[in-house]
């Protein structure tokens, strides 16, 4: 399996699409930093900056910390997850669409090993991209923004870890969808729907419907959605990967952080397991 992993890394490095996506990702990091510079760096706009950081990063001081910079540059930056989705779809599909898979798929009696090798290679590529972009984003913000400070290191580490798990889970989900539909279109559409937050609207409607059916006070329900009241009812969105990823902040409490990690791990295990099962049961498309 290590040999297959090496092969996948080789083709990822040789593929032009990886290079193009890498360049786009870095370019968007600089563009996002430009936005951060406009919002956070002008003392005259500190009020706006403070309100924005409160809203987006969960820091009320107007100063941006390393954890806040990471949140702003990676999580709030849709480009990162869009690039990740495109990469996952292309990588999962490329050897099938080119037919190269025919050369290697028969080497093991059990084909789940093929899925595992490809998934580990994809994870390695995403990890490298995530590490580079995180470091670049944090370095740019801390190095060039006047009102920035490193802040709490444990909060940064927690944020790095939780967001990483969510991204890998998201990648695994896109990987499964691409394998399921046997085409890049399915994975691309679902991935982009998640990345742009469209799915969150649907989840919210479902939550409201459940609240209404369970007889919850609708005023309290809406207040809870706005974050100014206690959650008094079961919300499906609390267990949906896209929602936990987009709503996670470093300043979240321990129980919410644990829930986010658990949701990410469950999604990762579920979709990886399903991908492996699918490979054992289905013919190889090529």
């Amino acid at each position: 399996m290590l040999n297959l992993f090496t092969m996948h890394m080789y083709r990822a490095l040789k593929a032009k699409s990886s290079l193009v996506l890498g360049i786009i990702m870095v370019a968007f990091m600089f563009a996002t930093f430009g936005l951060a510079f406009i919002i956070f760096d002008d003392p005259l706009k500190l009020g706006i900056g403070a309100a924005y950081t409160q809203m987006m990063v969960g820091e009320g001081s107007g100063n941006i910390s390393a954890a806040g910079a990471h949140h702003f540059m990676i999580q709030s930056n849709d480009a990162f997850i869009i690039c990740l989705t495109i990469f996952a779809v292309i990588f999962a599909n490329c050897d099938f669409s080119r037919g190269f898979v025919k050369n290697t798929y028969g080497m093991f009696e059990h084909r789940w090993k093929q899925v595992w090798s490809k998934w580990t290679a994809m994870t390695a590529c995403v990890s490298i991209a995530y590490a580079v972009c995180s470091m670049l984003g944090i370095a740019l913000c801390l190095g060039l923004l006047k009102n920035s400070q490193f802040g709490d290191a444990s909060q940064l580490l927690r944020s790095l870890g939780v967001v990483y798990l969510c991204l890998i889970a998201m990648m695994t989900m896109v990987f499964f969808i691409t394998n399921l539909f046997k085409s890049p279109a399915g994975g691309m559409v679902i991935g982009l729907i998640i990345a742009t937050g469209i799915l969150q609207t649907g989840e919210m409607i479902l939550d409201l419907l459940i609240a209404k059916l369970s007889g919850a006070d609708m005023n309290e329900t809406v207040a809870a959605f706005a974050g100014i009241g206690e959650k008094t009812f079961f919300r499906i969105s609390d267990y949906c990967l896209d929602n936990v990823y987009l709503s996670y902040t470093a300043s979240m409490g321990t129980s919410d952080t644990i829930r986010t990690v658990a949701v990410a791990l469950v999604h990762m295990a579920l979709f990886l397991g399903l991908s492996m099962l699918l490979s054992e049961k289905r013919d190889v498309r090529c």
Partner: peptide, 12 residues
Amino acid sequence: VLIEDPGVFQNM
């Protein structure tokens, strides 16, 4: 295995 068309990466 060489089944149907050769499975190759076109840009390589």
